[in-house]
């Protein structure tokens, strides 16, 4: 039994290797991209549209709405990054119902990579919105003494993102694997269903926390929208406390 899909290596040449995480990531990417291409190839602007188009529209509109509700006034600018985070994690979790599929999010390397992306994206979006100096000065708020704590907070929450997702996905896969060896019939199916639910919840948590971080970084200097930014903060704290 492998603790991480990284340990399943299909091909290796020195430092470069092709492990299960990368392969299944490509698989998820292929599913997403090919599915998107196939569905969006014949998009209808009429009132009547296909079921698949309807599904994609529902997904995209709801992601956009969630981003907006968190406090980002222009959700389309963040849609490709945040929406891709959600879709990648969610499809990885849904893939667990396929026998032999190893979710790439069950690898700490993958979750760390996603957390790193968020870690980089938050200051980038912050700087894009507020400018370098104003964004950097937000680390010294409310006083200069808070600077190290803010930096520690940035790093720790990135780490928390990575470990939370990895822990949940890995544990789900591990539990199913263990249960299959103990009670091979009914119970693993129930746990698989529970794992699906956990995976979707984790995708939502990862996505919403990333959105909250970006919202906090881009709107910290806008007192008028402070209350709007506060709400997602509360939500994120609540989500974190649940974990």
């Amino acid at each position: 039994m492998h603790l991480s899909p990284d340990q399943i290596i299909f091909w290796q040449m020195g430092f470069v290797k092709l492990n299960s995480t990368i392969v299944f990531t490509w698989a998820v990417m292929l599913v997403l991209v090919i599915g998107s291409v196939l569905i969006t190839r014949k998009l209808s602007t009429d009132l009547h549209r296909s079921r698949w188009q309807n599904l994609l529209e529902v997904v995209v509109i709801n992601i956009s709405k969630q981003i907006e509700e968190v406090g980002l006034s222009d959700p389309r600018s963040y849609l490709s990054f945040l929406g891709s985070l959600f879709l990648f994690i969610a499809v990885s979790a849904l893939g667990t119902i396929i026998p032999g599929f190893e979710p790439p999010t069950g690898s700490l390397s993958s979750t760390a990579a996603l957390a790193l992306c968020v870690f980089v994206a938050v200051p980038l979006y912050g700087i894009q919105e507020q400018g370098v100096s104003r964004y950097l000065s937000s680390y010294a708020k409310p006083t200069f003494i808070m600077l190290p704590f803010n930096i520690i907070s940035e790093v720790s929450r990135t780490l928390a993102l990575a470990v939370r997702l990895f822990g949940n996905m890995m544990s789900g896969a591990m539990i199913i694997a263990i249960l299959l060896s103990i009670t091979p019939f009914l119970f693993p199916i129930v746990m698989t269903l529970l794992g699906l639910l956990t995976g979707i919840v984790q995708a939502y948590i990862f996505f919403i926390l990333a959105t909250v971080y970006i919202a906090a970084a881009t709107r910290s200097q806008k007192p008028a929208n402070q209350t709007a930014a506060d709400k997602p903060d509360l939500k994120s704290h609540k989500a974190e406390s649940e974990q």
Partner: peptide, 20 residues
């Protein structure tokens, strides 16, 4: 793997932006 996944994710984000 981390590096590869970062690249993978960025590519995925671009592809989804382009096709979805």
């Amino acid at each position: 793997t981390v590096t590869a996944q970062v690249i993978n994710f960025l590519v995925l984000a671009w592809l989804l932006k382009r096709f979805l």
